[in-house]
Design a protein around this nucleic acid. Structure first.
Length: 272
DNA sequence: CAAGACTCCTGTCAGC
DNA sequence: TGCTGACAGGAGTCTT
């Protein structure tokens, strides 16, 4: 799935083209995503101007004067901008948002785990957004914060990292990679981490996410950014999907296990 | 209350 | 080669 770097990359890709633009219509070819897109979305948005685009966790928030369109890319979603001639929709091109100036924002999502929801209430009244923890790249996500938060948690550290109430935007791939870089076994009880380890872990998460954003961001091989280029962060995985391969640091074979129903990859020698 | 299982969906890949 | 089945994955929700 697009993890946070992909969502951020997507935001940066679409934002310049759609901010201040006025919606002409919304064409919905497949409304059944994770939740059904409401039928009258085109009526609601017709003639409405986008006043800003933001990201919170992996949610894209498209702000209008009368409300907000929340878009989640699920695990296989992508958004593309088209100007000029609009190509015929491909399979899984579920929604087009057409603007008065001719620009089209097209939503593509083969597995339909994504979402496109309209809210008229304020952000702090939207349940999806109210229980989210800190953004991983902001100052309030620190080693001290993580240490304090995990202090009483007996669940595995990897499970805690992937919990959006602890920190948002760390999905399975980045949880695996950051634990490897911090030298921490994913099975460790969260509360067993020393403050030093929490600091190292936060540092690893931030380095990996920043690097992924810099390189354009990609997790799934079919991720496509807003102009249709695919990312290439997947070339840099150290443990994810490398079961049996030699650890790049110590040559020990990478092991795989399942934690919280998620594939978990680690080096039993480098991670303690 | 916490932890785990289940759910949505389709493309991909292993196994026969 | 073709078919079947398992699997992946974010995150809300239901079950234990």
């Amino acid at each position: 799935m697009p993890e946070l770097p992909e969502v951020e990359t997507t935001l940066r890709g679409i934002e310049p083209y759609i901010t201040h633009q006025i919606v002409d219509k919304v064409v919905i070819r497949q409304a059944q995503l994770r939740w059904r897109i409401q039928d009258n979305l085109s009526d609601i948005l017709h003639g409405q101007r986008i006043i800003g685009c933001h990201r919170r966790a992996k949610y894209l928030l498209i702000q209008f004067e009368i409300g907000m369109l929340l878009i989640h890319l699920g695990m296989s979603g992508s958004l593309r901008i088209f100007r000029g001639i609009l190509p015929a929709p491909l399979k899984h091109d579920h929604v087009d948002i057409q603007f008065k100036n001719g620009v089209v924002l097209r939503y593509h999502d083969p597995r339909r785990f994504g979402a496109m929801l309209w809210f008229e209430e304020k952000c702090d009244a939207i349940p999806l957004l109210t229980h989210l923890g800190p953004e991983p790249l902001e100052d309030n996500f620190s080693g001290e914060y993580l240490y304090a938060t995990l202090k009483k948690q007996s669940r595995p550290i990897k499970t805690a990292l992937m919990d959006n109430e602890v920190v948002v935007g760390v999905g399975n791939i980045y949880a695996n990679e950051s634990l490897f870089r911090a030298g921490i076994l994913p099975t460790r009880a969260a509360k067993s981490l020393k403050k030093k380890e929490c600091i190292a872990l936060v540092d690893a998460i931030q380095k990996i996410l920043r690097r992924a954003i810099e390189t354009g961001g990609s997790t799934l091989k079919d991720f496509v950014d807003s102009e249709g280029r695919s990312g290439y962060f997947q070339q840099e995985y150290k443990v994810y999907g490398r079961t049996g391969e030699a650890c790049q640091v110590c040559d020990t074979p990478i092991q795989k296990s399942i934690i919280g129903q998620r594939g978990t990859f680690f080096c039993p020698h480098c991670q303690r």
